[in-house]
Simulated scan of single mutants.
Amino acid sequence: MMKKYILFLLMIVVWSCNDDIFSDGIKLESKLAVEGWIEEGDGPQVILSRTIPINDVVDSTNVLNHVIRSAKITVSDGETTEVLRVKKDNDRIPPFIYFGSEIIGKAGKTYTLKIEYLNRIVEATTSIPNTVPIASAIYEKKNVADTTGYIFIKFDDPVNEKNYYQIATKVDKKEPIFVPAFYGNLDDDNFDSHSVSMQVNRGRLFFPKSKFTPYFTDGDLIFVKLRTMNKEVFNFWNSWQNEIVNSKNPIYPSNTSLKSNIKGGVGIWAGYGQSTVQVKTVPKK
């Protein structure tokens, strides 16, 4: 069975220290937290929750208490409107996700999100940029005798086109979701050449059941994804990355300033172009 992880816990990011009455006389943090995305070639997906007050215990049990499973979530591409359904996904914590299948992500299109829950309405808009394909991806070790290594990828950044990127990886049978790579958020203003070659460092999951390591190991089957995104989405992920780089906990960011494109709540509604390749490591000895 796959180990359970959570990629990032927007539901427990403390964006505000103000509590109010949310429902049934229970005093809860008032904001709705959204982790939503639509990738090219796939349907929309949303994880919805309430933020956890700063003085509460943060563990998987309390996270489950703040998950929202009864909201009406609508996604539109300007032509088709779809109400998302909710399903249980045991490979995630929390194990519930809203999903759609009528709307499939396409580059160049804009997608609106509307969430209705109790007396709250949350809205957001995103778009999917053109995909930039991965030219190559290989597993390399510093020494032949090593049992660990890193991924090196190459891709061509389109000339005269502004692009923001994120590199993410997923280790087969160890990670059920793609995890943003450490230093994996890229602005093409920082590239020296349109031909990009770089090392990919394994990113960190929260609540893992095994010790985190920033490298890959012999015997791993690794999926590498290059996402393109707009500036709003990049700003969110860059603020997230900065918290990790600065050795801060993004669950409780030092300045409570993680970027967001959500109106009426917090979090992110992201559109991604995506190119995914498979990398086989050397057999485990």
Rank of each mutant, 00 (worst) to 15 (best):
K3Y: 11
I6D: 06
L10F: 12
I12F: 04
V13C: 14
V14M: 01
D19A: 08
D20W: 07
S23R: 13
D24P: 02
I26L: 12
L28S: 09
L28Q: 13
E29S: 13
E29Y: 03
A33Y: 03
A33E: 00
W37D: 08
D42W: 09
S49A: 14
T51H: 07
I54H: 07
D56K: 10
V57K: 13
S60P: 11
S60V: 10
T61S: 14
N62R: 01
N62Q: 03
N65L: 06
V67W: 11
I68M: 05
R69G: 05
S70D: 15
K72Q: 10
T74I: 15
T74G: 01
S76K: 02
D77H: 01
G78F: 00
E79L: 12
E79M: 09
E82Q: 00
R85V: 04
K88A: 07
D89L: 12
P95F: 07
Y98A: 09
S101N: 15
E102Y: 08
G105E: 06
G105T: 11
K106C: 10
K109E: 10
K109A: 02
K114P: 04
E116G: 04
Y117H: 13
R120Y: 12
V122H: 06
E123S: 14
A124R: 02
T125Q: 05
N130S: 13
V132Q: 01
P133V: 11
I134C: 06
S136V: 05
I138D: 14
K141E: 00
K141A: 00
V144G: 01
K154M: 00
F155E: 11
D157C: 11
V159H: 05
V159K: 15
N160K: 11
E161A: 08
I167E: 05
K173R: 02
P176T: 14
F178G: 01
V179Y: 04
V179D: 09
P180V: 11
P180S: 05
A181I: 08
F182M: 10
N185M: 13
N185F: 14
D187A: 09
D189H: 12
N190Y: 14
N190C: 01
M198Q: 10
N201V: 11
N201T: 14
R202C: 06
R202L: 11
G203P: 09
R204N: 04
F207C: 10
P208E: 09
F212A: 02
F212E: 05
P214Y: 12
G219A: 00
D220G: 01
V224Y: 00
V224N: 08
K225V: 02
L226V: 14
T228G: 15
N230V: 13
N230W: 07
F236P: 14
F236T: 10
F236Q: 10
W237F: 15
W237D: 06
N238K: 15
S239D: 13
Q241K: 13
N242E: 15
E243R: 06
Y252E: 06
S257T: 14
S257V: 06
I262H: 02
K263C: 08
V266P: 00
G267F: 01
Y272R: 02
Y272P: 01
Q274R: 10
K280R: 02
T281R: 00
T281H: 02
